[in-house]
Simulated scan of single mutants.
Amino acid sequence: MLKYPFFLYGQRYTAATGESLLAGYKRQGLAYLYTFLGINILTGIINTAGVAMLSGTLFAGYGFDGSKIPAFTIGILLICAAVILLGHYKLLDKSAKVIVVLLSLSTLVALGLAFTHGSVASADFVGSSAWTWQAFPFLVLLLGWMPAPIDLSAWSSLWMFSREEETGHFATTRETSIDFYLGYVMAAVMAVAFFALGKLIMFGSGEELASGGIGFSTQLVNLYSANIGEWSKPLILTAAFSTMFSTTMTCIDGYPRSLAASCTLVHDNFTNHFKPIFKVWIVLSVVASCLIVLYFVDNLLQLLSFAAVVSFITSPVLAYINYKVMNGSNVPIEERPGPLLKLMSWAGILFFVLMTVGFIYVTFIRV
């Protein structure tokens, strides 16, 4: 709920003004654009490496040798990069829709079956409290990627121009709102479904997720199949792998796209060279991600945790910039945030700041 306004602003700003959210950053001052560029370079490479490694780990769960995970991960990165470089937005858009439908159906089927079996936790099981300082870093980690890092708001803005190139139609404010709310509501429904699955088949099981790759994927799938049935292993594994493969492809398209768009705005000499700059950023991102994967090959959870935390502690900055841009003088008054959206925006910014300060206190100050 607290991230919702800042994702909404990405599409609404573009529909209302006809320019990208990043162009709005530049209107507020180059410092804002450079801030986004710096954050995006850091989070982009880490997040891409994290989701790609999780994809490779899940792929190894089909019965392959766990020592091959780095090779699988690098292969996935290269395949995704090739698809984007050759197929561009249209293929990405179509494949993402198919995968989302597969994930949604698989998740709902798994949830229905889990309900018939009931919770795996014993009646007298009492879990540890989330309302302690010890649990604080985990809460920040969890919130970093839920439902996504805030810098993804720039992606939806840029994708509107890609969709215009494919369809010949630039979406109106009303059309983008319908598209946005459908996606956001579906994300909320899936979040509740995953939460319910966790409560039914993981919470209270006594299992602790392994930090290594193959152990992690095997354990994750087994936690589902042990309560639903062995036959469900391929279903769960395929849903998980499809989701992460799609996410990897989205990251390899989204981060370089936003970096390239930022470069074209930073200097006039780059204005008409978006596509070559975009391709260069794809190559650089994939190479850097491959190096990170090789470094973190023995500790998947450490990489994912670090990526999620970095995404969260940058949230206050990006949230404030999005809010400032949406209230710019070039935005029609009727399209600017109303009282409720303003209240939600400031509540979100305050929440992100307090949680970030709390994380720094627990991690570096409190003994």
Rank of each mutant, 00 (worst) to 15 (best):
F203T: 15
G206I: 03
G206F: 02
E208M: 14
L209F: 15
L209G: 08
L209D: 08
S211H: 10
G215M: 01
F216M: 02
S217N: 09
T218K: 09
T218E: 11
L220S: 11
N222L: 07
L223E: 13
L223K: 11
N227K: 12
N227S: 14
I228H: 03
G229L: 05
G229H: 06
G229D: 09
E230M: 10
W231S: 07
W231H: 09
S232T: 00
S232E: 01
P234W: 13
L235H: 15
L235M: 15
L235Q: 13
A240L: 09
T243Y: 00
M244Y: 15
F245R: 03
S246Q: 05
S246G: 15
T247M: 13
T247P: 05
M249C: 06
M249H: 03
C251I: 09
I252P: 08
P256E: 05
R257Y: 03
S258P: 08
S262A: 15
S262H: 07
C263A: 15
T264M: 03
L265H: 14
H267I: 09
H267W: 13
D268Y: 05
D268P: 01
T271Q: 14
N272Q: 14
F274N: 07
F274W: 11
I277F: 11
K279L: 07
K279I: 06
K279P: 04
W281P: 05
W281T: 04
W281E: 06
L284N: 06
L284P: 04
V286E: 01
V287Y: 03
V287W: 05
S289L: 03
S289F: 02
C290Q: 02
I292D: 09
I292Q: 10
Y295I: 12
Y295N: 13
V297C: 07
N299A: 01
L301R: 11
Q302F: 08
Q302N: 10
L304M: 07
S305D: 06
F306S: 11
F312E: 00
F312M: 01
I313A: 04
I313M: 04
P316H: 05
V317F: 06
L318F: 00
A319T: 00
A319R: 01
I321G: 05
I321K: 07
N322L: 09
K324W: 04
V325I: 09
M326N: 13
M326I: 05
N327R: 08
G328P: 05
